[in-house]
Amino acid sequence: MKTVKVNKMEKKSRNIFLIPYIIWIAVFVIIPIILVIYYSFVDIHGHFTLANYKKFFTPVYLKMALTSFWYAFLITAITLLISYPTAYLLTKTKYKQIWLLLIILPSWINLLLRAYAFIGLFGRHGLVNALLEVMGIGEKQLLFTDFSFIFVSVYIFIPFMILPIFNALDKINPSLIDASKDLGASGWTTFRRVIFPLTFEGVKAGCQVVFIPALSLFMLTRLIAGNRVITLGTAVEQHFLVTRDWGMGSAIAVFLTIIMVLTMLITGKRKRVIKSEKA
């Protein structure tokens, strides 16, 4: 009798603890998504329509989707190439927490300010060009190029990639690596067969955290790339703020959401496949 009562109480209090979470999810996740989906089926006169989606599958938007993908992919790949070795070296250093802090520190500064700082650095009379001049390479156009766009995006995303990879690497039991070496594996084999598989979850988390926001970057495309790079994010911003064609903006947003869910599903599925193989 008594135990049953306690269980009931526990259940009750557990339900109470769930309330803030449910309210949060409903107000900030579910209702907005429903609204976006609803608006995507409404034209500028407020009538039901499929035209927004039809318009999305025209060359202009498809090309935009492709460029968004291409740049997001490049940004993710380069970020990963830089972050993995960095995270690896970090775990080997003596004061790793301090080094980690130094890498994360810039991300405490507002993104917009950092973007503006790069306008100054990359400008014709900026520091980078002054250096190039001294080295005898001569002045180069840096601002408003693909290079500067990818460079700044990578710079901004690096902390988000390093953190999960660093955590995964840091958790590896060193005896596993020792065991691999004892059994005669070369450094490369140890990395390929032991270290990388053990950190794969971290890499996946990092890629998700970088790829998804990179897909809808819009502020940097204007500030750093001078609108020479147009992504779906730019289009969403324009439709909501300038054209006030919320329907079209929502249709693009729905498409982006679907792609994001798909990315999550695909990166999540592989894990299950591996598990079932093991079984």
Binding site: I119, G123, R124, H125, L143, F144, R222, L223, A225, G226, N227, R228
Partner: peptide, 15 residues
């Protein structure tokens, strides 16, 4: 480039 208010800065700094 196609930009917003940054134009002022770009022109003043002779970018």
């Amino acid at each position: 480039a196609i930009v917003g208010d940054e134009i002022k800065m770009l022109m003043v700094n002779e970018e």
